[in-house]
């Protein structure tokens, strides 16, 4: 395995790319957010709780969370992305729901749905995690009862080095030999709500990655909170 001594963009190994977050950016939505990490930009809009159709999906005990992740056709690093759902976008929609559901309390909304629409306008790796961060802010902005804001970013390995928040160049390091581990965390408890991995890695290194993610989570959490505070401070 080749050594990776200095990151392409000069970051420290445990440093995330610059993050910008904003709440309440889509007026028609009940809650919304903008979240940018490096060159990856996500918007999220929340609609609901609203009535759920088709009716057979309704749960009389609690509301349903429904997430939809989508890349705009011009948001990919390469060719145009065909509009409409793909296998990839459907899976990411599913894991986005799973990442967010544990912090939500939807008992007050039987038979209803909370719709979360995540749109990526431009991407450079880490788009599902950016979408989850945007969705976290948007859900809180919509006034949905939450016990914490889920944060998500990637950790992984580039060459022989454990790093946080891989960018596109790092994902493609040495013919895609790097390891990408998108992780979602509940910062107040350290619990994991999203965990995927793409690439070969030892158990020790996985432990290191998760530890690194848990160390960085509070800082990201602070950025999400600040976005919400800023919105309500100006209104």
């Amino acid at each position: 395995m080749s050594s990776y001594t200095k990151r392409f963009d000069g970051r420290k190994f445990d440093e995330l790319r610059p993050i910008e977050a904003k709440a309440g950016v889509i007026k028609k939505a009940d809650g919304s957010a903008y979240f940018r990490i490096g060159k990856t930009t996500a918007y999220a809009a929340v609609y609901g709780p609203r009535e759920l159709y088709p009716k057979f999906l309704q749960d009389p005990k609690q509301g349903l969370l429904r997430c939809n992740y989508n890349m705009m056709p011009f948001s990919g690093a390469g060719e145009r992305v065909r509009p409409g759902p793909s296998r990839r976008s459907k899976e990411i929609s599913l894991i986005t729901e799973r990442a967010l559901r544990p912090v939500l309390d939807l008992k007050d909304f039987p038979n209803a749905v909370v719709d979360v629409f995540v749109e990526l306008t431009e991407t450079d790796a880490g788009s599902r995690c950016a979408g989850i961060c945007a969705a976290s802010i948007a859900l809180a902005d919509a006034g949905i009862l939450m016990k914490d804001l889920v944060v998500a970013f990637s950790v992984g390995k580039v060459g022989d080095q454990v790093v946080v928040d891989l960018d596109g160049d790092e994902e493609h390091f040495e013919s895609n030999s790097s390891v990408d581990i998108p992780i979602g965390l509940i910062p107040s408890t350290g619990e994991i709500t999203l965990l995927q991995a793409d690439g070969r890695i030892s158990p020790e290194d996985i432990r290191k990655c998760i530890k690194m993610a848990q160390e960085r989570a509070p800082a990201v959490s602070e950025i999400l909170r600040k976005a919400l505070k800023e919105k309500y401070a100006t209104e």
Binding site: I26, K28, A29, Y43, A44, A45, Y47, R50, N68, N70, M72, P73, P83, G84, D115, F117, V118, E119
Partner: peptide, 18 residues
């Protein structure tokens, strides 16, 4: 030329084919 009336942009827009 394509236009996607994304459900993100308005409560009346629905997911699915154009």
């Amino acid at each position: 030329v394509g236009a996607e009336l994304l459900p993100l942009a308005n409560p009346a827009f629905e997911s699915g084919p154009p």
